[in-house]
Design a protein around this nucleic acid. Structure first.
Lengths: 359, 359
DNA sequence: ATGAAAGCGCTAACAG
DNA sequence: CTGTTAGCGCTTTCAT
């Protein structure tokens, strides 16, 4: 079953002359620790000690084992290793799906992980399409305890903390609590967005929100209302609608809003995806952005610069948030005392999807 | 040790009225299969059968076990499960680091995985910074056999195929071989890029390549030379330099190129990162793009639209490549007969980093 | 300095 | 229909 180094040539003789076959034969299947042990003439326990740099192995043995490891291309199985040792030096990033928001965080986490000695494992439950709430709980249960030493969870709705397992939530939907969190100033950002539209002369401003159960969505709506109130402009409740934060779900909402005879002159979308969706719908209805409709988004995902016209939006420093989350997680695992809530500022990014209303 | 469902209320009574506290107490630590078995009054084998939907369990037992599973929030450990069963319904995407190129692929793979029943696990070796070749071999050895049923490997240099384990390489550095691959037409894309510069009247055109050992890099350089030759323009070899495909590594090369008295009027960078780096260097040297220097890239990562001026580049359909790679992998695992090499077309994307030379 | 043996959480024969 | 048993690949006492 297991491959002796010694029978490589026998088997190769039976193969064809394709290089790939030779490679295949040299490593016909996964080589495990007992393969190494056998080839080196030692026990698996000794191999394990060598692999993990434990004391109590003769110099000569160490070298012989390492040589065999190198020759066979042995690498410890993450699954088996973690099952037994409960320490893997792998950190998890748990997402519902890999969309622009989470991949920006991922980039930031990836740069921050360099030099920490940890590796990164991003896991998508696949339940992206709004289906299946509780993905974060399932993913966490599946990976924690084994496989990963800690996790960053992206936009979780509910998080249970397990004893002895560290979790950092990015943009959690429940708002800061006992759980370590990283988010941006959603309220201030929404005020920024709304004030921008107001300063351009807009008064009939619509808002396409995320979902009422999401904290970030609630804060953005609250910021919108605050800015409107501060400007003394009444909010037309018929122009405030739930859009769900996704391209498809926001399209219907945008359609209803824009089909009105008294449609808004400007829309503050709860996130860039909703804003992009709104622009798509507007185009299909024969409206021109920004001439017939101004649109502002939230997030500043790279895609917002790629659409036509480029989207004016509120920047969240996503990569930085990912990096901060990872650093916070590493610190928590190391047992450092530090502030477990990080809130980063937002910023207005003016591109070309809003215009000033003529007097 | 193990959590009785029954003590939830007792503990909650001591807590505050925050829902999160109740949850914390309900699942103080990882619940495993024996916890479930004990709570349900059956053996772990029976629980396993219920979890995996095996035949031969009484209706009533199934329901009782499922109830306990639900109450305890049990989820099978991926590590343990895969160690034993060698089938996890998880597909891996192995990358050196999470940068714009690989995250675009990830987005595509993420959309393609929906509905397949698989989940996605993206693993970064962390050896991003050009260090440590062979990351793909190590990552693969670490995850294959356990944890994942197949893998998409992003820009691998060397890949060994293991028996019975399916791997798809995206943009492999060795060119199509026996291994299933997905890439884009690098040669044609490079011709497109070069012709664009030629059509704008440029003759002194520099090229910042990737690394000679990378197939995609070689093809782009070859396409550049072909287009120049076809146009009857001699290539000045002093203007063709290795840049390494990364921001930092390309900066030095760009600096040397632009410091020349007879510096090029246009640069075809081997990828967008090199192009962006070249624009940075040009700015630092007091040169204006595109007035003093035209720059064209390759890839069309979202970032290329965000820089100033927006980068003219060659689009590879990255998300589509990721999606195709994932579909190919799924098909291979299913044992389908199909073409194992997929090559997608490239396209010129004109933005604002190139200008026509005055006559 | 080395190895035998137990066990991490799970699945798969096999017995009952 | 259910439980007992063995073992996946690894780490870790504990003997030798």
């Amino acid at each position: 079953m297991s491959i002796g180094v010694d029978n490589v040539f026998d088997s190769a003789a039976e193969g064809r002359d394709l290089p790939s076959i030779i490679i295949n034969v040299a490593f016909p299947q996964r080589v495990n620790m007992s393969d190494v042990a056998r080839a080196a003439g030692v026990s698996v326990a000794t191999v394990s000690k060598v692999v993990n740099g434990r004391y109590g192995v003769a110099r000569a043995t160490i070298e012989r084992v390492q040589q065999v490891i190198h020759q066979l291309g042995y690498e410890a199985s993450l699954g088996a290793q973690s099952l037994r040792s409960h320490r893997t030096n792998v950190l998890g990033i748990l997402v519902a799906e890999f969309e622009p928001f989470s991949t920006e965080l991922l980039k930031g986490a990836s740069t921050a992980v360099a030099g920490t000695g940890y590796q990164l494992l991003a896991y998508s439950s696949g339940d992206g399409a709004g289906t299946a709430v509780g993905w974060e709980r399932r993913s966490l249960a599946r990976l924690s305890g084994t496989l990963i030493d800690g996790a960053v969870i992206v936009t979780p709705t509910v998080v249970e903390t397990k004893q002895g397992f560290h979790v950092v939530a990015v943009d959690p939907h429940t708002g800061p609590s006992g759980l370590p969190t990283v988010d941006s100033d959603n309220f201030a950002g929404a005020v920024l967005a709304t004030n921008h539209l107001l300063s351009l002369g807009h008064r009939r401003i619509g808002h396409i929100s995320g979902r009422p159960d999401l904290e970030s969505s609630r804060l953005r709506e609250a910021g919108f209302r605050q800015a409107m109130a501060d400007a003394g402009v009444a909010v037309d409740e018929r122009l405030v609608r739930v859009g769900g934060f996704r391209i498809e779900s926001a399209a219907g909402t945008a359609g209803e809003l824009l089909a009105r005879a008294d449609r808004p002159t400007a829309v503050f979308a709860g996130n860039d995806l909703s804003a992009i969706s709104t622009m798509n719908v507007a185009r299909e209805m024969g409206l021109t952005v920004p001439d017939d409709l101004s649109v502002i988004g939230f997030d500043n995902i790279p895609e917002s610069a790629l659409v036509n016209p480029p989207l004016t939006t509120i920047m969240q420093p996503l990569q930085q948030m990912g990096a901060e989350a990872l650093r916070l997680l590493v610190d928590l695992i190391a047992g450092a005392e530090r502030d477990i809530h990080i809130r980063l500022p937002t910023e207005l990014v003016i591109r070309a999807s809003c215009r000033a209303l003529p007097d």
